[in-house]
């Protein structure tokens, strides 16, 4: 299974960071050609990111490139970057399924023969994008996740962005719902105060509670905290084990309806328990087999 607990942004015009990107053990690195790069440096950054994809070992981190919007430098980005074989393109400011179709067409046109198809994550950061989230999530099977960009979104609303995040609670819920409806993951907006570790923990816990499966990170220092929150806790692992044990026992005994601690176990519960154990196994292959 995939796990994208943490996706670490790094500026596409910073050679030192691009070179070191693999050492932080994020589940994915996002080599950024968009907001981190000034317009007059787009060409240089594009060349640098392409070279990095060819030469730098990002270890266990998946490689994601955030390109520019298709109405600015996005098509040039796709032509230069996709043949270099990133695993995922992060498409910013997606507002419709049509944007996904355009991007996929452009990507297909430049993929090398035999190249593993490059996946897409749609960054939803406008009210229109949020309104179209389900259509975007279902637009193409290359779309593996929706990600929330709350800074631009709240600016569009004219709302003030706060640490507590009351202003984005609906956006978060809608995004998670659309992603779940399409059977893909939802990824949460970054927490922007890199010095506030307690704030990051609380914000990530909230995201996990709402159904997000991972979080965008803007600093390597955030990765361990985000992983700690998204990793299943000991209690969650024990619960999952008991759910699956109860199911096995029911199958052995041939009983139809299964209950655990007085609560009925149905398919979604089993699926959540299986996901929990799969995550736990990724964390610690030995201990979880039981």
């Amino acid at each position: 299974m995939e796990r994208l607990r943490s996706l670490l942004f790094m500026p596409g015009n910073n050679p030192a960071m691009l070179q070191a990107g693999g050492v932080f053990e994020a589940d994915a690195v996002i080599l950024d050609l968009e907001d981190a790069v000034a317009p007059r440096e787009k060409d240089a950054a594009r060349m640098l990111v392409r070279a990095a994809l060819h030469t730098v070992d990002y270890g266990a981190s998946r490689t994601v490139v955030r390109i520019n919007t298709l109405d600015t430098f996005g098509h040039e980005d796709i032509r230069a970057i996709v043949p270099a074989g990133p695993q995922v393109i992060l498409l910013p400011k997606v507002e419709s399924a049509a944007a996904i179709h355009d991007a996929v067409a452009a990507m297909k046109a430049v993929e090398r023969p035999g190249q593993e198809p490059v996946k897409l994550i749609a960054l939803i950061e406008t009210p229109c994008g949020l309104a179209e989230a389900l259509a975007i999530a279902r637009a193409d099977k290359r779309v593996i996740a929706l990600a929330l960009g709350a800074e631009d979104y709240t600016a569009s609303l004219g709302a003030q962005r706060t640490k507590v995040g009351t202003e984005i609670i609906t956006a978060r819920n809608l995004l998670v719902n659309a992603a779940a409806a399409a059977g893909i993951d939802a990824l949460d907006t970054p927490f922007t105060d890199v010095n506030d570790e307690a704030g990051l923990t609380a914000d990530t816990q909230l995201a996990k509670q709402l159904g997000f499966k991972g979080k965008l990170c803007i600093n390597p220092r955030q990765i361990d905290t985000v992983h700690d929150v998204f990793n299943p806790s000991e209690a969650e692992i024990n619960w999952a084990r008991r759910v699956l044990a109860a199911i096995r026992q029911a199958e052995a005994e041939g009983t139809g309806v299964v209950a655990l601690d007085g609560k009925m176990i149905d398919a979604p519960i089993v699926s959540r328990a299986q996901r929990t154990l799969a995550l736990a196994r990724l964390q610690n292959p030995q201990e979880v087999e039981a």
């Binding site: 960071m17 070191a20 050492v23 932080f24 600093n219 390597p220 220092r221 361990d224």
Partner: peptide
């Protein structure tokens, strides 16, 4: 420095 912090950790 993120690399320095990684080494320290």
């Amino acid at each position: 420095d993120p690399v320095g912090l990684k080494i320290a950790a």
